[in-house]
Simulated assay, not measured.
Amino acid sequence: MQEPLAVYSVEEDWGNCLKMQSNMIRHIHHYLVNENVPYDLLTHFTSYAISRIHKSLTAVRMLMESELLADARSILRTMVELVVTYRYIVKSLEKSISRFLEFDDILSYELICAWEKHKPSLRFDTDRKNYLAANYAQNKERYPILYHWCDVTLDSMADETGMKLWYDAVYLPGTLHDHPDLPGVCECVNRPFNPLDLRIQSDMPPGTDVMKKSCQLAVMLLESAAAAVREEAGELEDTWKRCREELNPF
């Protein structure tokens, strides 16, 4: 079942949007400061994801207050990827979590190689580099998609987790806006390409829409997290319900 997308008009009250988002940030902050979780991979990965969503909500608010809509939309895109990734990993935890964690070493070695290629004067810790190089040689075949931890695309992950609508309607258009691909942007918004038309900002959704979608994604992540850590979900489930109540009037 696909997750519904909220659609909002430009005329909706800006003050109510700010209040809703501020309250959600406060609820999640309170949970993160006071959480008491056992030492296991699932709960710690869940804490990582909730911390990321909290920072993203805060970033969206700060950017919107500074009237930086394009940058806020970029954060919204990363929030979609985070929710898709979390849902996909908890569906097959034992298989996916090890790949997700192991990929940090793979990416670290690729970054070292990139720096050494362009800045050969740089020096890295020899023991650390040798460890990463050995790990990379042993495991690189498991990561056929460049700079991606999973062996399937994010598109496929979204399809498996009921997030395909979010991928198609938010993540993919956001990717086109994040990269200087004007023909792709114009195709996305269904109008002819004009090389002189650089007003990409005008084709983006209104600020209230970005703020509310960020809140909707936060609620979706909290709901998935509460379901994933059922035995330890007391305060987390309460936080999810409080945030959901903030979203309901909209």
Rank of each mutant, 00 (worst) to 15 (best):
V83T: 06
H179E: 10
G15K: 15
K129E: 01
V83N: 01
S96N: 15
R123D: 06
R61Y: 14
C113G: 11
S47M: 12
E141F: 14
S121Q: 10
E94L: 13
R142D: 14
V37N: 06
L221A: 04
T239R: 00
D155A: 13
L5C: 07
G174K: 01
S121W: 12
H118Q: 08
A49V: 02
V80W: 06
A72F: 00
C113Q: 13
R77F: 03
D71Y: 03
F103E: 05
D197V: 05
S66I: 02
W240E: 04
K91T: 11
L165D: 15
E11T: 06
P38K: 10
D40N: 15
H27L: 01
A227R: 09
I53D: 06
Q201H: 09
E223N: 12
N34S: 11
G162C: 07
A218V: 14
I89V: 15
R199D: 13
V84Q: 00
M220W: 11
L41D: 13
D203C: 06
M1Q: 12
S22R: 15
S74N: 07
D127F: 04
T126K: 09
L176S: 09
V33S: 09
H54S: 15
G174W: 00
P144R: 05
A133Q: 14
T43N: 12
C188M: 14
V189L: 13
L217Q: 12
E231L: 10
G15L: 14
E65V: 05
C186T: 12
T208M: 01
P180A: 15
A137P: 00
S47A: 14
I145T: 08
S98W: 01
Q216M: 13
T239Q: 00
P206E: 08
H30Q: 06
L176E: 02
S51G: 15
T175C: 15
V210T: 07
R123W: 08
R242Y: 12
G207A: 11
N34Y: 10
Y109G: 00
C215N: 11
